[in-house]
Design a protein around this nucleic acid. Structure first.
Ligand SMILES: [Mn+2]
Ligand SMILES: [Mn+2]
Ligand SMILES: [Zn+2]
Ligand SMILES: [Zn+2]
Lengths: 138, 138
DNA sequence: AAAATAGATTAGAATCATTCTAATGTATTG
DNA sequence: CAATACATTAGAATGATTCTAATCTATTTT
């Protein structure tokens, strides 16, 4: 029974019911000053700590995917065995330290791409993502 | 039995033993005119067809990862539940049709990136990958 | 050159990220 | 306030990947 007004409104206006599971997840994901990157497993761990009521991992998947479909989250294209999600839904790119599994945003204003090749016939561009892999010096 | 000389040499010089499993996999992956993109599952299917002797899926994983470590293959950064590998080990980028799970190479000469942001401190750039997602027109 | 040892490789079994689906919950209708 | 339709949850199933014990191969020892 906290300050869920905003989340309830947004869920309703997206056609999603504001269940207590979804509101708890909204609180963890969106009641922050800064956006961040996460995996389902990291999200699960935040619910295991905190005396927050248990949420099934299947529900975490359902909810995160529903939020992604509604545009509250973006999925990041990365190799590796866990999917990364991003609460920053603006167009942007990433530095990625594979060794640390650490992502850092790069504003898309700071990247310019001049690609010459024509798009394969019958297709149009949907998005352009730049991933700059980094590693420790030396 | 076949013309494995080249593969045997390369494996030996990388410190990998030229087992019959590895040679069979080399033949499928590298005895071609054009490079290509594949998943472990697609590779598995090519061995299920053909009367080629059965290779355990674990061995496909072991071998593909060993080949990647030795630089015969690259892993492609994509979301989705199956990892894509690339027999094109030159620096290059991709068009990707998520709906079709279809990758097309973009030569890196055809892409120029001017990124302003400094690399996070203590880190250096390892690689830059551009993924252009495409979809059907209209 | 056979046997012993060490190290590499294979592949069945285990794991774990993700998806499926039957049960439960919620809104809408009469 | 039923009854019905639809949305949501979460335990179970799936499937991609990894683990590890058994097997194979190369090297060293006798
Ligand atoms: Mn992937
Ligand atoms: Mn991923
Ligand atoms: Zn981001
Ligand atoms: Zn490629």
């Amino acid at each position: 029974m906290g300050q869920y007004k905003f989340h309830i409104e947004r869920l309703r206006s997206s056609g999603l019911r504001p269940t207590k599971q979804r509101l708890a997840i909204c609180k963890v994901l969106f009641d922050r000053k800064e956006t961040f990157h996460f995996t389902i497993d990291k999200l699960k761990k935040t619910f295991e700590k905190g005396t927050k009521k248990k949420i099934s991992v299947a529900t975490l998947y359902n909810t995160v995917h529903a939020f992604k479909e509604k545009g509250y989250l973006k999925e990041i294209s990365l190799k590796g065995n866990q999917t990364f999600f991003d609460t920053n839904t603006k167009n942007h790119h990433h530095f990625y330290d594979e060794h640390m599994s650490q992502l850092v945003d790069i504003d898309d204003k700071n990247v310019s791409i001049n690609y010459l090749p024509k798009t394969p016939s019958g297709k149009k561009i949907k998005s352009i993502e730049v991933l700059v892999k980094i590693e420790d010096n030396n």
